[in-house]
Design a protein around this nucleic acid. Sequence first.
DNA 1: GGGGAGGAACTTGTATACTAGTGTGGAAAT
DNA 2: ATTTCCACACTAGTATACAAGTTCCTCCCC
Lengths: 258, 258
Amino acid sequence: MGSFASTLLPPEPAATSGRRGASGAAYAWLRREILAGRMRPGQALSENEVAARLGVSRTPVREAFIRLESEGLLLVRPQVGTTVAPIDVDAVADGQFLREAIECRTTRLAAGRVRPTDARELKALLRDQARAVARNDQAGFLSLDDRMHQHIVAMAGRPNVWRAVEEVKAQLDRVRVLSLEDPSWLAAILAQHEAIVTHVLAGDGVAAAAAMETHLRSVFGSIDAIASRDPGYFRGGAPASRSGAPLSRPQPPARRSS
Amino acid sequence: MGSFASTLLPPEPAATSGRRGASGAAYAWLRREILAGRMRPGQALSENEVAARLGVSRTPVREAFIRLESEGLLLVRPQVGTTVAPIDVDAVADGQFLREAIECRTTRLAAGRVRPTDARELKALLRDQARAVARNDQAGFLSLDDRMHQHIVAMAGRPNVWRAVEEVKAQLDRVRVLSLEDPSWLAAILAQHEAIVTHVLAGDGVAAAAAMETHLRSVFGSIDAIASRDPGYFRGGAPASRSGAPLSRPQPPARRSS
DNA sequence: GGGGAGGAACTTGTATACTAGTGTGGAAAT
DNA sequence: ATTTCCACACTAGTATACAAGTTCCTCCCC
């Protein structure tokens, strides 16, 4: 029953890496870089390059590549090269669908299992989120956002389901990091969070699930705007208008530089 | 729009393997063995052993291990050994929860998007399932079962979501293969399928989703019986009554045999 | 000047060698 | 006979070497 230590953990514990050692480190580093948007969709990578960058051999890097490919974050083309996966609008929609399916259900269940400690925790998270909005601390807000969603999943009695959400969320986060610049959105999201928590604490599962659905959809709604602004990062949405696309010619081969 | 070729594909195309070459072959083979129950929970494996069995080196086997571990089918303990993951009752429940969340939603949506070709396909699948029941062909029935569920997911407009279902389903299938011996269950499952299809074709999404939920739960209901019958295969459910447990002493080290 | 053949340098896939750590069995001491 | 301890064999993790394939650039021929 000690599962509520989750609120004490740092935002992203090493548990996400799953695997120990250099392999897990490479995985965690690459995943962070990609999800943070520092490695852009379409950017070419190579096992050798990353291995040199991290000071390890190809083997652990390769293992990280495999896991990231199976998560849809890398695109490995045998004998050709590996790139950061373009954002597939359809894959994002699938992620959105899955997250709705999962989290609407957990939210509905959570509303029927509110314990005093849960109420306190959710209120504390909302308070901290309000502070983050006031500070315009986007990174902090996102972390608190995740913790709230995770807590609701745990309340539903299925704490480990959060792992599935994390995998699905990855595709969505890649879009979100491209969009999240307008500070007014943070306030809007916070308002939606407050609505969710209100319904959950009131024990109204149906309303809580509906509020969660609205919430998740609003985040997804921005994808069209992003896709038309950065068409080069996407695949399947824009009809390959390669006019000023900044990708697809990875890098001037940089003959034996360093 | 050509996505309905799915009904023409063989039951399990190589697409499941995801990765080409020896690595993909090792992955596909191991996954099949585990899900078919031929490799039992707790059974010790080793990269060397499997590599020799498949006639390849450790490298591709290792890559297969990594993917299977991330799917929860293998348990890799560094410097100690790798075993087929014991069936974690909690993980199975999580899988059940996820599948309900996903498939109830797809079923509800599917009911609102029935095209003539879908109606024909679903009826044909039901007919074939009835024949499989008559023949007591369990493997054939399971394959048709998967195809029906997959088709409903595709009808909902999210065909690739089936990949997520497949991953989640793995944990459930391990239990199912231990249970599926009573032929009367096949008839019961078929009846549930007929109910689902009826509601879907009638366009009643709510009833269809409810029928799907009933259906999925009934499969899950057998887990307690299995867990008490084969306690050695499970973890977390039984309080470690190691009386006659057939696992956990992998193999007499077989000193330099062969 | 334009086009085609060839080669160099890159990519990932696979095989092998080496490292570090763990558990088990057996020998030795009590 | 029992207990302690040590050595060996086996494990997965990592590093390196080799193989097969693709792309692109250059040089040569027309």
